[in-house]
Design a protein around this nucleic acid. Structure first.
Lengths: 118, 118
DNA sequence: TCAACATTTGATCATATGTTCATATATAAT
DNA sequence: ATTATATATGAACATATGATCAAATGTTGA
């Protein structure tokens, strides 16, 4: 319990409200994980990559050409998306084909698009 | 069309795949808006604020006490969430009560939680 | 009007982020 | 083996981000 908590406790805080919400509050680590997931979706390049992969698997070079950035930039972002288990890949000769590794992305994008387009 | 696009065009790019995806690709501004929305959800403090507001409206001081950060930090984050039209507020005396201003947050969190907890 | 309180705002600072460039790795073809 | 191609990686750099502090604003009650 931090200093400002104590300070608030004796001033403006509605204790009942805070207690009520605290019962159902997210655990710290879950909040952090959730934020990391959304952060992974929070960049235009990564949004484009994931949206493109909703249609079909693509190799790094395809994605770079489609989105208009260097292969290096795409590769760096794919690494991050891999770390979040949002994409998976398979190697075929010299190419590496990426595809979605998560069933929630479509719904996340659908909900997100509803928000931004209304 | 950028330099690396031309380079790719004569090398590894699968033109058919890229053309196919390009047909249904997000517009630049929509991709940016979507990324901005997810970026707004991409911070633990903001995740906690929004999650708390799923239960009930709370004033700045309540949120600060609940989450364990200063009122100033909460206020700064609320400003950002307001800009994204994710929260709205009403003034009651000296307090300002915040509540959700978007029907998609619950579903976004539900989908996100499924991803991070599996 | 003044004092106290709740919130907001601006400045500052340390850290995180995203791209680029150069280089390394991996595979294929000659 | 050597070369070319596709991807990955690390360093560097400019920019963005999030918290804190101090100060400003707005509201209430004495």
């Amino acid at each position: 319990m931090s200093e400002q908590y104590v300070r608030c406790e004796v001033s403006c805080v509605n204790e009942d409200a805070v207690t009520e919400v605290r019962q159902v509050m997210l655990d710290e680590d879950v909040a952090v994980s959730l934020a990391e997931l959304f952060k992974a979706l929070g960049d235009p390049t990564r949004v484009k990559i994931l949206f493109a992969l909703l249609t079909r698997e693509l190799c790094v070079c395809d994605l770079a050409a489609l989105i208009g950035v260097t292969e290096s930039a795409v590769s760096h972002q794919l690494r991050l998306l891999r770390a979040q288990k949002l994409v998976k890949f398979r190697r075929e000769g010299k190419n590496v084909y990426y595809s979605l590794d998560d069933s929630h992305i479509e719904e996340l994008f659908a909900q997100g698009l509803e928000h931004v387009t209304e």
